[in-house]
Design a protein around this nucleic acid. Structure first.
Length: 105
DNA sequence: CACCTGACAAATT
DNA sequence: TAATTTGCCAGGT
């Protein structure tokens, strides 16, 4: 079932992110075939609210917690990521270079 | 039915 | 170097 819609694929990839790792919208979008569809990826996560996806492991290109506002609170994502062993550069920025995970690996 | 918005990114001016 | 524009997909108004 590796083929539904862009939307469902996003959930698939996000659900496959290993604990202690993070990925970016651009990488997911590129893996789906459209490097510029990053906004649709974020859109999918928003719609995935309640699907049980680790959306906190998805950050923007700079490692910034973009979705913290729609998550339920800025501290929620931060705390979750810290609990998984993610290193933070800032209170809303993770060490993307250190924990970057690419789909398909 | 047509236009706008939205957790982004990369290229161009 | 910074600011602006376009691309992507789906849903809401």
């Amino acid at each position: 079932m590796a083929n539904q819609d862009f939307f469902d694929k996003v959930w698939e990839v996000v659900a496959d992110i290993p604990l202690g790792k993070v990925t970016t919208y651009g990488h997911i979008a590129a893996y789906l075939g459209s490097k510029s569809a990053s906004r649709t990826v974020g859109w999918a996560l928003k719609a995935a609210s309640g699907h049980g996806l680790p959306c906190h492991r998805v950050v923007n290109r700079y490692g910034g917690l973009s979705g913290h506002a729609s998550f339920g609170g800025p501290y929620v994502m931060e705390d979750l990521l810290r609990s998984e062993g993610i290193a933070f550069l800032d209170e809303t920025t993770v060490d993307i270079e250190k924990h970057l995970w690419v789909p398909g690996t």
